[in-house]
Design a binder for these strands. Structure first.
Length: 562
RNA sequence: CCGCCCGUAGCACAACCGGAUAGUGCAACGGCCUUCUAAGCCGUAGGUUGCAGGUUCGAAUCCUGCCGGGCGGGCCA
């Protein structure tokens, strides 16, 4: 609809240029927007105000000229010049309801597009190290990252989702020592407890499982415990697998899966880390100082240089990160999106600097990042700290258990990633039945109920048969609802393009409200009004389809009954 | 001291990337079920968009400076 009007305006413009009223403006596409207020029409453009200066005409006069130059069409009932020079378009009835036919025809694919053209994009998210259960922050990353995958896929990209984790390193050694200490009967309160040990109760469970010689299977590995509490390597291998399985269960409960799990250790084993360092040295981007090897990241926009290899000979964390991203590039991902917590934002400059130093032709802004701000968890009015070591943090599993999967996903994905987020446990509990997600799901279930009713009423009362009676839809509530449906493809396209899943959530809330209003104002199934009832059924079904499509993008279920 | 993010109604958040009278949910108040799901609808109340300037037809949005909050600025990850 927007596109149709934009094209009409472009024709009007070229007419005006021909007449010499307006200078040529290459690259200018008229901006058509949905209005906020129905009294401003269905759609509006600010074109006259944008062009007024260049045309040397008052905006309202120019608006009049633009309208006069519009080609004949069947879409617009009337136009209006308003305020400082807006042109408001009032669509005719047929233009409003035509979308119903489109939605029913396209079904689950309504709103999808092919802008990605099948190109490869990799989305890395969660990437928690296997040292504890997933916390709320990981949950936010999972909700946003998974939704991004769905959005990109819906807009024609070939999406590869990936989870990267460190299965060796110092943190993992601490983990193994902690489990060993538990197995030896120590508790975090004892003096002999490892200095940087993990204190959570899951460590005790892990120690018990290890000593019981349990077998655990995670998404990417399976192992049986040896049970020898003096074999630190064995404890470490088992612990990693055990925690990977815990995280898998959390993600599964959250409805999130990955195409690939990538191990940091593999970058060392394959020699990729060493090759990366060698390439950076050859490129002349490194120097030695104080016994350490430094990378001149300041040549690439960092405010100071960074250590790559410590005095002791170990690499710092961002070196394997650079090697990892080179690997992504070599796998052919022209586009890579990393979704991670904002506390890691300083790695962006370093990783990009390292990649530039490799001179592999990697674009400067590659990879892209979506950073989500921290989640603050309130309980009893007090902040619960998200400390992995403390073991007292709120886990993703806790949230799912308390408020349910759908509400948790919606809550975490329905807000802009760049905003800090307060997750008030008590509020979430108290409002679990009044969460916005239920409002949307309820609209879906209601429509399903109406359809059941209609089918029982008369054999031929199906939404599809309503397509012949769309001219019966004339009430403001019906037309407003139909107009909202036309916005959906644009919402999906914008959300995918801007990497903002929360736009879909906001739209769905708006759509559900429009439906609830329509439902309450008009009887859907009325035996004395067959044509009208059928038309309303068609509109309801189109609404249901869009709600289902939108909820799917957020990974939220669309129940048929509630 | 420097960098990134943020500041919108009592609370949690939106605002189609510069548009018209700043919205939604919760909380508060008043109505609506003998009829399709009341997890709903209709209405009332609630705001100097942190503060002060600037840019322009037009600013919550862009620029500058303050104030306040979060996260970074480790040879930690």
């Amino acid at each position: 609809m927007k596109e149709a009007l934009t094209s009409l305006l472009e024709q009007s413009l070229s007419n005006l240029v021909t007449q010499g009223l307006v200078p040529e403006c290459p690259g200018l596409t008229p901006q058509v927007d949905h209005t906020r207020d129905a009294s401003h029409g269905d759609l509006a453009t600010n074109l006259a105000m944008v062009l007024a200066k260049r045309a040397g005409m008052p905006p309202r006069d120019l608006a009049k000229a633009i309208i006069t130059a519009l080609p004949d069409n069947t879409l617009i009932a009337r136009t209006e010049i308003a305020g400082p020079g807006f042109i408001n378009f009032f669509l005719n009835q047929a233009s409003h309801v035509d979308v119903i036919r489109q939605v029913l025809g396209a079904g689950p694919t309504f709103g999808t597009s092919a802008v990605g053209a099948g190109r490869k994009v990799q989305v890395e998210f969660v990437s928690a190290n296997p040292t504890g259960p997933l916390h709320v922050g990981h949950g936010r990353g999972a909700a946003i990252g998974d939704s991004l995958c769905r959005l990109l896929s819906a807009t024609g990209w070939t999406v590869h989702s990936e989870f990267y984790y460190n299965d060796a390193g110092q943190q993992i050694t601490n983990l193994a020592r902690s489990v060993q200490a538990r197995a030896l009967g120590l508790t975090p309160e004892d003096d002999d407890w490892p200095a940087d040990g993990y204190r959570g109760t899951y460590i005790a469970d892990l120690a018990t499982a290890y000593q019981a010689r349990s077998t655990v299977s995670a998404a990417d590995r399976s192992i049986t415990a040896l049970g020898d509490i003096h074999d630190l390597d064995a404890i470490q291998d088992f612990s990693v697998a055990w925690l990977r399985r815990e995280q898998d269960l959390d993600l599964k409960a959250f409805g999130v899966t990955f195409d690939e799990y990538f191990l940091e250790s593999s970058l060392y084993e394959s020699g990729a880390v060493n090759r990366t360092v060698a390439a950076l040295e050859q490129g002349g981007h490194t120097y030695e100082q104080g016994g350490a090897l430094w990378l001149r990241t300041s040549d690439f926009g960092d405010d100071k240089d960074r250590v790559m290899r410590k005095k002791e000979g170990d690499y710092t964390y961002f070196v394997p990160d650079v090697a990892y991203h080179l690997n992504k590039w070599q796998r052919g991902f022209e586009r890579v999106i990393n979704e991670q917590g904002a506390d890691h934002h300083s790695t962006i400059t370093r990783v990009r600097a390292g990649l530039q130093g490799l001179a592999e032709g990697i674009p400067q802004g590659w990879p892209e990042y979506v950073l989500h701000q921290m989640v603050t968890v309130l309980r009893d009015g007090e902040e619960v700290k998200l400390s992995k070591r403390a073991g007292s943090y709120v886990t993703l599993r806790d949230l799912i258990d308390w408020v349910g999967r759908d509400a948790t996903r919606f809550f975490l994905a329905a807000r802009s990633a760049s905003s800090q987020l307060t997750f008030d446990i008590d509020l979430a509990l108290a409002q679990s039945n009044e969460n916005p997600v239920f409002y949307i799901q309820y609209a879906h279930a209601r429509i399903c109920s109406v359809k059941r009713k209609a089918v029982h009423h008369e054999a031929n009362w199906t939404p599809e048969s309503g397509l012949e009676h769309l001219d019966r839809l004339v009430e403001p509530e019906a037309l407003a609802l139909a107009l909202l449906l036309t916005k959906y493809p644009g919402v999906v396209a914008a959300a995918a393009q801007q990497l903002e899943p929360h736009a879909v959530a906001n739209y769905l809330r708006e759509l559900a409200a429009a439906f609830h209003g329509f439902y309450n104002a008009h009887k859907m199934v009325d035996e004395s009004e067959e044509g009208l009832s059928l038309a309303r059924l068609a509109l309801a079904e189109a609404t249901r389809q869009v709600i289902a499509n939108g909820l799917a993008l957020l990974g939220v279920s669309a129940p048929e009954t509630m």
